[in-house]
Nucleic acid binder design. Structure first.
Lengths: 336, 336
DNA sequence: TTGTACGCGTTATCAT
DNA sequence: ATGATAACGCGTACAA
């Protein structure tokens, strides 16, 4: 009963002012097409006049819909550092707001299927959920069974019927290699991300596909398994340079490793891109602000968010939803 | 009436099973201290047995409290790039969740006082709001008048009674200069951020205070007004080097400009830190992954978020709330 | 097409 | 300390 402010108008007052029933007010405000146009006008006028604004809690209670979509982020250290989450959440939020839905942020460890977040999602406090950065599919498996509409960002690990949205990681990697080949590089190494991650896997696949397509040799010794860290890029590049004197390009699965590789190359007394070209992935802040400027594969992160939001809205409307793969774009700078 | 899942238990069933009234159930579930301990136990047992979970919409309708705190981010390009927002929002979210509150994300331009977000906040759909990155104080002025509990991240522009949380920008800048002086630097230049921003202002103030304290000369020509961009850092550093042959240190108000300065110094044929030391601000991803590693002033970003959340919770409890200034820490790497 | 009447699940007031 | 019971504001069968 803690009325926050002076109490606001309700259907009763609108109905009275417009000379209709409360039911009609409800119909007009929810866009029911079969209401006489003059009554619609009357209601809208009354709404304006009174400065009416709907009480969402009451609507939620009556309808069972909350108007809220959860954005669930699997909490680990990267959340603190990686601008990816901000960008994608921003994309989601924009689309949701345009559709009068709001974004509820849930940041928590998702390893436990009975975690508070899991409970929350099963409690019907949101109309749907968008998952970012999934380590395991167990939780969404369970939620899907409970008919919670959900969309996943990133390709799921298992072959599930989840609708997901992802960047064309393989295609981006392919484009990077093509560019290297086109500019005359012959011996191209790859430093992968953590391969338990589907994106890392796909970026490697794209590399291998391109190598095959363009007739490059890809002995195992040219493919180093990294873990996204600067150190991995630095150390692997160092070893690659030592083992392969003719190496003239390194493609890394993210920008951080690529910058580590650049440092290693320079410390080895070779130039970038003169002797060795380097391409990263993500076109992050790092790529844009490094020196020399890092050539990198750009993901449409805001686009990923927007698509995810559109998909969940479609699901709420009961439409069939198909997964989406958004194209990547190679951004040329100085390193390749 | 769209029951999402099989309908969940309500007070009625708990009351029946526990042999008490619904009112008592409510009291127990809301922690009313004056309920007999055996009844409390009975209710809790029934709750467990039925797997009861509170319907927040109903609670919100009846109580006027939503359990939601809005995190409002003034939308502009930086949201896409800067990891700051993710980190602080994460800090906020954690504390709120521990207190059974949820984080509602609102990303939108706040220039218009009648924007959708402004409307939303005035609609009572959240119990309070935390503002990040404020360009103007007009909106919060209005909301404060409407008694919406709010906390601001960053020092407001005007002298208002808003509770805010901020980093000790001046103190951080002071520490940076002290370090430079301690390591023998004599001629220290400053490249500021956009001075319409209070953080930029404070970082300059700290610089000037330290210069004064340590007896440095700070002619106007040693203070360049930047705008946070890499180009600003690069161009200003270039000019500073030309004008001041004895220049042996540059303190920049963020990491991006600092990296631009490093490039300019190196291109001028001088070494970092041998000839010229460079210190940045933020200890961002950039500072950690640059080469040479950038010495920088670290803000406790997650701490800012956590404090902001604690402050808003205290406000909701009706407590007096005081603004908080969190200390910064100088992180030494290679450039200084 | 429109109105009546009730239900949604809690909270809070008022007696007791 | 506890129990009835009236709000809370909206959505929606059902009837007309």
């Amino acid at each position: 009963m803690a009325a926050k402010q002076k109490s606001r108008p309700t259907y009763a007052e609108i109905a009275k002012l417009a000379g209709v029933s409360e039911a009609t007010v409800s119909r007009v405000l929810n866009g029911d097409p079969k209401v006489d146009s003059d009554r619609v006008a009357a209601v809208n006028k009354a709404v304006d006049q009174l400065g009416y604004q709907k009480n969402r809690a009451a609507a939620a209670l009556a309808s069972g819909r909350t108007g809220l979509i959860a954005v669930v982020i699997d909490d680990d250290l990267s959340v603190f550092q990686d601008p990816f989450w901000g960008a994608i959440t921003n994309g989601i939020s924009k689309v949701l707001m345009e559709n009068e839905m709001q974004t509820l942020l849930l940041v928590a460890p998702l390893d436990n299927i009975d975690s508070p977040v899991a409970q929350y999602l099963q409690r019907g406090e949101v109309d749907g959920a968008i998952f970012l950065q999934l380590h395991k599919d167990t939780l969404i498996n369970r939620l899907a069974k409970q008919n919670l509409p959900l969309v996943v960002n990133g390709t799921p690990h298992t072959n599930n019927p989840f609708a997901y949205v992802d960047s064309d990681n393989a295609g981006g990697a392919f484009a990077a290699v093509r560019h290297l080949v086109d500019s005359g590089r012959k011996v191209i190494a790859k430093i992968t991300g953590d391969l338990s991650n589907t994106a890392a896997e796909q970026r490697l696949e794209g590399f291998l596909a391109a190598a095959n397509e363009f007739g490059l040799k890809t002995p195992k010794s040219l493919i180093a398994q990294g873990d996204w860290s600067r150190e991995a890029g630095y150390n692997h590049a160092k070893k690659l340079l030592a083992k392969h004197p003719t190496l003239d390009a390194i493609f890394c699965s993210n920008d951080v490793m690529a910058l580590g590789a650049v440092t290693a190359i320079q410390e080895a007394g070779r130039s970038v891109p003169g002797d060795v070209a380097v391409v990263g992935f993500d076109d992050s802040y790092l790529a844009q602000n490094s020196h020399p400027g890092l050539t990198s594969v750009r993901q449409d992160i805001a686009g990923l968010g927007a698509e995810a939001a559109k998909m969940i809205l479609a699901k709420l409307r009961g439409e069939e939803v198909h997964s989406e793969i958004l194209p990547c774009e190679l951004v040329l700078r100085e390193t390749a």
